[in-house]
Design a protein around this nucleic acid. Structure first.
Length: 481
RNA sequence: GGCGGUAUCGUCUAGGGGACUAGGACACAGCCCUCUCAAGGCUGGAACACGGGUUCGAAUCCCGUUACCGCUACCA
């Protein structure tokens, strides 16, 4: 088999959309799986809507996801001369013809037909002129568009995702390939570029299904090999409509900033519209490549379920090597004003330990930072709910905390096992359940009713700060009493 | 309107004529574990759009209906 060449061809009119990212991912996976090339083409021929900022956002999104491309980026706008030449090649060969009809006239006819409830089809016979008429208009320098002469018959292809799709050619009107200002139209540009890039498989969103017969006709008229096609379904929002801004975050950059891991995003996206065929869900990139196959591609539109994405992120948060997580998350700690990256790097054992404690309790990297606040700073703010729930009787609680403080202070080693033994013994002496000691202590240390295991908290807050916090809680309770 | 596509729990999906009492995951509820919270384990409710065929047998194949989506530009 020929080395496959696939491409992702976004137009730079916005950020990298999750749907686009998934199309890119499937192409990328295909290239990796079958030892081919994954190319990137920026379709910037719509000058009015294309921006450099969007182009950059697409690069950044793809890079964040790790979907790297194999050759230099192709800018469609740089190839208009070839698009023009290809269109004229079709004109010269008789596969296309000049249309001198003013656009306004065509539009009028179309509107009239629609008003009558009829479907409009461009009328080739009235547009195709005799050689003499054409020569005359040409001599007068009248502008013309080039229209493709759709042949009789039908056009079909075996789609990778669907089975076989067929269109009767009579339903395809003679479409314009070159505007009267000499610029190429989308279908012309795409085919010209895909031929030039030697693309063997065009995998794209299924909103392009009805463009495909037109493009196949163009390939044939140009004498080029028709590539394979695969049309993957769209991604919809929770209301079943095409995903758009109304649904909230739709750009992959949004998810990056929300605290998602790229590997989780990739994993989630891969499972939207593709299945490995068994019950395996959580996969790393190498496994995704290994398991990827065309057969698992689905034809049905999928709804983007943020809840499942979050769950997936939690799974990957638990799987990622701790050092890698530290690397990703350290800048977020710095941004939150908790510690500098340098500080965290200087005590990796402590930092990794804290992350180990929190990764399983968080679904987003941002949540890890939030939860980590407990382990920084000297003072603790007590939540009203925590006081109400665990510190109801100030006098009794103060006494318990004082005893807890004293017992911990006598400890020679600041190890969870030793601390647990000491405090359980204290509870027994006082005839209390462990919880009666641990819960008030938790509030003293964190100000909250929930936290990681109390002995881990003690360990990572550290001996000095822990004892200080408990002492502070005791005096707080005395004042209140 | 025309053309094309799609249809399994609320959501993502397994399913390729008999292994289907339809499996897994998210979400939800309950229980277990337990110093709280997570994580984890267990349990539960929850689906083959509808109607016709084909067949000994249909979630699976065919046809129709319905619903939804896309395209229908001198946009991409």
């Amino acid at each position: 088999m020929k080395r496959p060449r696939v491409r992702f061809a976004p137009s730079p009119t916005g950020f990298l959309h999750v749907g686009g990212a998934r199309t890119a991912l499937f192409n990328w996976l295909y290239a990796k799986k079958f030892d081919g090339d994954f190319l990137l083409r920026i379709e910037d021929t719509d000058r009015a809507r294309s921006t450099d900022e969007s182009t950059r956002a697409i690069f950044e999104g793809l890079e964040w996801l790790g979907l790297t491309w194999d050759e230099e980026v192709v800018y469609q706008g740089a190839n208009v001369a070839r698009h023009y030449a290809d269109a004229h090649r079709l004109l010269d060969s008789g596969a296309a013809y000049r249309d001198f009809t003013p656009p306004a006239e065509t539009e009028r006819l179309r509107n009239e037909a629609e008003a009558r409830g009829e479907s409009y089809r461009f009328d080739r016979d009235s547009a195709m002129l005799s050689d003499a008429e054409t020569a005359e208009k040409l001599a007068r320098n009248e502008p013309y568009a080039i229209r493709f002469k759709v042949p009789d018959g039908y056009t079909e292809w075996p789609d990778l995702v669907h089975e076989r799709i067929a269109f009767p050619n009579k339903d395809i009107e003679d479409f314009i390939i070159l505007r009267s200002d000499g610029t190429p139209v989308y279908n012309m540009a795409v085919v010209s570029d895909d031929i030039a890039m030697r693309i063997t498989l065009v995998m794209r969103g299924d909103d392009h299904i009805s463009n495909t017969p037109k493009q196949i006709l163009l390939y044939r008229a140009l004498g080029a090999d028709v590539p394979q096609f695969g049309h993957v379904p769209m991604i919809h929002g929770a209301d079943g409509k095409k995903l758009s801004k109304r649904h909230g975050a739709t750009a992959v950059g949004d998810y990056q900033h929300l605290g998602f891991l790229p590997q989780a995003m990739l994993n989630f996206l891969a499972l939207l519209g593709w299945s490995p065929g068994d019950d395996l869900e959580v996969m790393q990139l190498p496994e995704l490549i290994e398991r990827f196959n065309v057969h698992g591609l689905h034809a049905k539109a999928a709804i983007f379920d943020t809840k499942k994405l979050e769950w997936m992120n939690g799974q990957h948060l638990a799987l990622i090597p701790i050092a890698e997580l530290a690397h990703v998350v350290a800048p977020l700690f710095e941004k939150a004003g908790l510690a500098t990256v340098a500080d965290l790097e200087s005590r990796p054992e402590w930092f990794h330990g804290v992350l180990e404690l929190l990764r399983v309790r968080a679904r987003l990297t941002d949540e890890i930072v939030q939860l980590a606040t407990t382990f920084f700073g000297e003072s603790v703010e007590y939540e009203a709910e925590a006081i109400g729930k665990q510190w109801r009787d100030a006098a009794v609680t103060g006494e318990i905390l004082q005893a807890t403080h004293d017992r911990l202070a006598t400890l020679e080693s600041w190890e969870p096992a030793a601390m647990e033994e000491a405090l359980r013994k204290l509870a027994e002496e006082k005839g209390l359940s462990g919880g009666k000691i641990f819960q008030p202590l938790r509030v003293a240390l964190t100000g909250k009713t929930v936290s990681p295991g109390i002995f881990e908290v003690l360990l990572y807050v550290g001996r000095e700060h822990s004892l200080a916090r408990v002492a502070a809680a005791v005096s707080f309770l005395k004042q209140g009493a």
